[in-house]
Simulated scan of single mutants.
Amino acid sequence: MLKKKILSLSMLSILSVSLLFSGCQSMGKSSTSTANTINLYAGGSDNVRTTWESVIKEFNTKNPNIKVNLQFIPSGTSSQGAVDKLIASEKSGQKETDIDLVEVTDGDISRLIKESGEKSLETLSSDKIPNIKDVKFQSSVGKDKALVFRGTTVVLAYNSDKVKDVPKTDTELYEWIKKNPGRFAYNDPTTGGAGASFLITSVYNGLPLEAIVSDDVKWKDQWNKGLALLKELHPYMYSSSGKVQYPAKNQGTLDLLANGQVDMIPAWADMTLDQLDKGTLPKSTKITQISPSLTGGVESLVIPSKSKNKEAAEKFMDFVDSVDGQKIFIESMKAIPVIDKSKLPQEDIDKLAGLEVKDFRPYSIGDLSKDLNKLWQDQIATLK
């Protein structure tokens, strides 16, 4: 009897140790399997970087088992972007990629689909990204391959103390520039999107509507009229030391407006509103949209089909278009929300001065933008 008791106790001890050990193993496996790391690729001005950092921080507090690495490429650098890397990986036949999420414009998506095919991007659905159902806008080229998360546009920013006859159309704007020599500036188009928008709209306003969303090289033959207009406007631009100057970067023209050296510029709405809020632009600064409008559009997120962490990437996408995510984009960079505004605090909506994504004028001309920039450098920037 004693032997049986001893044997039973021994077996119970062994069983307990075994269960404890297997439990530890199970816990170890669980903690490893729920921890994911996703790489988010984005680029642009510094306000874009700081906004993404805020979004990631808030996401991490709600999802501690998912780590988001921000791979950010500042504007004006020569670093290879995620779109180029994805195209290269597709052409080389790679089976996987460490790129899990990419911030893209419609132009980027168009290029990806053209060079890598639609299958290079994951199809998105409300089953895995529930907040898709609240998004009011869709990428014109990405469709169900892209999730729109913010709107942005270039507007005219002006000093309301000096400008009383505010232009309402492109024709009125060009007349204003000639009547007020030296009081208008746009940045070098190769250094920032605000100047590029002024160049593109000046050239494409005289072309058929479909041209501005086409990368067909046939449109290059019709650029001369727009370039001639920019040559005509050149002597009336901001000048320093007796020479016309095209400032570097989007911030360059905003600095001229802030210092009173010019009275009107093309500028990103989000940058202008953000700097007004922070007091780096005078209170007399106002913004307006002309007709046809300067270019803008929506920013989207895509998941490469070869991503190794699609489930975690979808969860991050869902947060970006949640009420909490949209609030961060509004408060941090004055981005235009893409979900129903009634779900957002009124004080945040009031900061956007009535801008609407539906009024934006998207463009998608692909690599033609590089050719147009080159012509601007050769024909406009070199003028005396």
Rank of each mutant, 00 (worst) to 15 (best):
V262E: 05
G206D: 15
P266W: 01
Q377E: 06
Q138H: 05
P208L: 09
D108N: 14
Q71E: 14
D106H: 02
T280F: 07
I113D: 04
G81S: 08
D161K: 12
E172W: 05
V323A: 08
L2R: 15
K225F: 07
K85S: 15
F149L: 04
K133W: 02
G193F: 04
A353Q: 14
K310H: 00
L147A: 03
D350Y: 08
E103I: 05
K225W: 11
E122M: 13
I200W: 05
Q379H: 04
S293P: 15
S293H: 11
V213D: 13
P181N: 07
N373Y: 06
I177R: 01
T382K: 11
V104R: 01
K5F: 13
H234W: 12
Q346M: 09
D367Y: 07
T123L: 10
P167F: 04
L124V: 00
F184P: 00
I177P: 05
K143M: 12
R150E: 11
Y186F: 13
P345N: 06
T272Q: 01
S18Q: 11
T97Y: 09
L230Y: 03
L86E: 11
S291D: 15
T123A: 06
G81D: 14
K128W: 00
K29N: 12
V135Q: 01
A194E: 00
L355E: 06
I349G: 10
Y246N: 00
W176E: 01
L383S: 03
R49Y: 14
V213W: 08
I14M: 10
A157Q: 07
V217C: 07
T201P: 04
K168N: 12
K179M: 12
T77H: 06
A157V: 09
D255T: 15
Q377N: 06
K133A: 12
L12M: 15
W268I: 10
V104Y: 03
M264H: 00
K95A: 15
G325M: 01
D318A: 04
V148W: 02
L121F: 03
S26T: 13
Q25W: 13
S79I: 13
P362I: 10
K5T: 14
V17H: 10
K341N: 12
K114T: 10
R150K: 15
I56C: 01
S284E: 08
S305R: 01
T169Y: 10
T285F: 05
L86Y: 07
L2Q: 12
K5E: 08
K57R: 15
I339S: 03
Y238M: 03
K278N: 10
T201W: 11
S160L: 07
